[in-house]
Design a protein around this nucleic acid. Structure first.
Lengths: 144, 144
DNA sequence: TCCTAAATAGAAATGAATTCGTTTTAGAAT
DNA sequence: ATTCTAAAACGAATTCATTTCTATTTAGGA
């Protein structure tokens, strides 16, 4: 279990520090997404010295390297989720209980309908946004 | 032109105040998304008294009623865009020049490919997130 | 066991966004 | 045209999630 996470970190080129591992374990033990502060409060019980910036930094780095997933929330806070699904997919996140359900990549309207029927939940809104650099910027050598 | 916006506001059940109209006009005059503060700075030249909270409030209300579109940005700032496309669609937003291109709703992978080829740009990442309430929350009467 | 780049602490700063009590105003009613 | 009232705006002050900074510690290769 734990060694598996050590390996995941090594593969991502990150040192397997106790605190980094603990953050990963804590997320792994949750079935929902969590905020940096929540994880910090939970982990402070185990580490007498643990800075909140350390939690922020690690979560961001872990998300950056693809080990965990960042959740975009309407309240504009940061949340993270440990998703084991290695296939390309998307998420149905519950704004109420924070549960995360995997959604295969497909037509978004049909997707919303299927998710609603399969989960018994209600899709209130969706975010679909492609980020990148447009053609004219690419040609003008604007920052990537 | 302007009367068209007055009508749009009335239809949304909002008073057509000069400042609200000006905010809408300012967004309409842009071919890209803008931040509340940018719009505020631009409009302060025309109104000796214009509070930044007023801009924030109006943009949020206009987005809420569907008159304008909120852009979700990796830098976590708020941006808004005046989109005239009434059909259901999504957006390809350029992180560099802020240009917004409409994207029809379809399979997201194929979509990214089509957008890249048609725009000559580069899709670096995408956000696809369904927000809502899951089945168990619905059944337990959790907040919508 | 060294050594060094990476990681952490923790106080302080940041700054986008919001709150709040007051004042003003759009637009319906008269 | 005038009155009235709920909606809108003001703007200083505040909030608070997130980040920065410099000194200190540590993981893990040599």
């Amino acid at each position: 279990m734990e060694h598996q996470h050590v390996t995941a970190l090594k593969e991502a080129g990150m040192k397997a520090t106790p605190k980094r591992l603990a953050i990963l374990e804590a997320l792994n033990g949750l079935s929902c997404y969590a905020s940096p502060e929540e994880l910090w409060k939970q982990l402070r019980a185990r580490f007498d010295r643990l800075g909140l910036p350390t939690v922020y930094r690690n979560l961001e780095e872990l998300a950056e390297s693809g080990v965990i997933t960042k959740v975009i929330h309407p309240n504009r806070q940061l949340y993270y989720y440990f998703c084991h699904n290695r296939d390309h997919h998307h998420h149905f996140v519950c704004l109420s209980c924070r549960k995360v359900e995997d959604v295969p990549s497909c037509g978004i309207e049909a997707m919303a309908e299927v998710v609603q029927q399969q989960s018994g939940g209600r899709v209130l809104s969706h975010i679909l946004q492609l980020n990148g650099v447009c053609g004219s910027c690419l040609r003008s050598g604007a920052p990537q």
